[in-house]
Design a protein around this nucleic acid. Sequence first.
DNA 1: GCGTTATGGTGCGATATCGTACTGTATGAT
DNA 2: ATCATACAGTACGATATCGCACCATAACGC
Lengths: 153, 153
Amino acid sequence: MPDQDTASDAARFFTFFNEVGIVYQLASAMFEARLPPGILVSQFAVLNHLVRVRDGRTPLDLARAFQVPKTTMTHSLVVLEKHHLIRLAPNPRDGRSKCVWITDQGREFRQAAIESLTPDFSALAARFAVGQLDTMLPVLQHLRKEMDLQRDG
Amino acid sequence: MPDQDTASDAARFFTFFNEVGIVYQLASAMFEARLPPGILVSQFAVLNHLVRVRDGRTPLDLARAFQVPKTTMTHSLVVLEKHHLIRLAPNPRDGRSKCVWITDQGREFRQAAIESLTPDFSALAARFAVGQLDTMLPVLQHLRKEMDLQRDG
DNA sequence: GCGTTATGGTGCGATATCGTACTGTATGAT
DNA sequence: ATCATACAGTACGATATCGCACCATAACGC
């Protein structure tokens, strides 16, 4: 009964994404409580991406990576630049475009923000066995990759 | 070396939540593309909660469930009521408060929205083995519960 | 080269989210 | 009963997010 199967698949995806959304909300709230006023999780996420993945890319690359409209990314970058956490340089390869570079201050800010979360993570580790994350992480990464491919192609 | 351990725990939580955030973004984008204009994921999520968990509760209960400020929830409820997807009734137990009830139209809307996602889920199921979700779901739910408890207590 | 189309970024207006302050009702102490 | 305090919801202003229109440059066809 393939109809039954696809219905069941859909229900499982829906339930799963619903749960992911809740965990995201809770983690965001936890994180935002530690960030200094004026910097939001969305903006920190950009900073984090520049360190974890690569800086020097264009605003549009970042917008695509985060699945947000380019106007939203422009705004986030303006805020980060105002705080001297990134630097926007002209793109030598394309006169229409720019390159986004993280500053030393930006790296320090990211590091400090991550460290400020340590108490929260410690408290959570006392409630939840961290080893369980190791099982889920590669599966989540694989899921993300496939969703990315589906989006693009 | 307990310091090393807690640092490693923190790094694992951070990496994991980062991945959760990415999956959430991708799933939201996928979902929002199927919702009719005028209804956002945040508003649909409220509707979904009313069916999955319970309706008849107060706006503040919902705000706490979603970890959003009560003013944000007020706004979402106004939008949903404007579309006749919910009904706001006075709370017979408390003159300051209200009760949120989903309408028949709201239930139909939710069902139709979920069904509109079926093609996306089918395509994704062809790329990603759905059974892997079943392993992660209970762990995610457990993590969410512990994060909730940490937040409250 | 020149014109057409495509693309990166921004300006602008609309809605969403959030913090603060306020209103009205409930709760509790006396 | 009266008063002080706590609490649910709203009003309002600030920022975030988003869609649409526009500008400047790039890419392409000829």
